[in-house]
Amino acid sequence: MFRFIIRRLLQLVPTLFGLSILLFIWLHRLPGGPETALLGERGTPETRAQIRENLGLNEPLPIQYGRFVKRLVQLDLGTSISTKREVTTEFLQRFPGTVELTMTAMLIAIGVGIPLGYLAARRRGSFLDHASVGGSLLGTCVPIFFLAYVLKAIFAENLGWFPTIGRQDASIDATHITNFFVLDGLLTREWDAAADAIWHLILPGVALASIPLAIIVRITRASVLEVLGEDFVRTAEAKGLTERTVRRRHVLRNAMLPVATSIGLLTGLLLSGAVLTETVFAFSGIGAFIKDAISNLDYPVLMGFIMIIAVIFALVNLLVDISYSLIDPRVRVR
């Protein structure tokens, strides 16, 4: 197991290296440059050239890339051109919001999706089955930002049950250590701050959960149906095990493998969806920041953020592969 993890981490290196080269060439070929965003239409050709010179953008690409790598091995991702702050600082400040949002969505999707998918498979052909299959088909077809607006209009603006925007109420004087607002609230024992942060997460979390929930329900249902037809389930029932034991030890455990795979693949989807949801709820995560960085061509921010996201994506998939052997001891990771 340990060797497997080490090997997978080593495999990550060439992939990231390739990705960084591709990204670098591609980003620097985009028309315009950060000087346009900094100066707007006012800049004279001379000031533009001066800025490019100061940022080191006139040197050959291989040299610029070399400098990027040299800083990267020192874990320095450079300074944002537009905010003049370090990329790692910007990331650490914004990413926790996105993580809280995606975790909430994932918790909702798994917590509701797996039981619902299981029940639908157990009562195949029942109303519950048809409703959850139909609902999950519909769930994948609703544009997520539209759903977010509808939820916001109904539950926040009309009924007033939830806050409309932001991550925390401005009137709460909360201490922030990690920028995970919920965690901060718990750490500092400011319970009201934590509760308020959770309150702000619910509507965007539900909107973001819609597609993963739909996918998890469908995969769980299909997978449980397949396992229910296996001989070992019949054997387990025949030897008189309680339904509870059959369900836990035999059915659910065997049905979880495809579900775990899909959860790993959903990470990318969640991050994309988070950008849209964050926009609707003015939730300060990485979404809006990446959007601005693209239009300003803030090279260090784009390179840094995309690389970190790729690493996280790879780590999540590694965790999923490790979880296979926990779910099913027959699967030996090599």
Partner: peptide, 22 residues
């Protein structure tokens, strides 16, 4: 497949947004 995996490792919207910006 390494190239394809790299494309897969980017969130789809980010990919689409960068193409659109390009």
């Amino acid at each position: 497949m390494r190239i394809v995996d790299m494309l897969l490792s980017l969130p789809s919207l980010l990919l689409a947004v960068s193409v659109a910006a390009l």
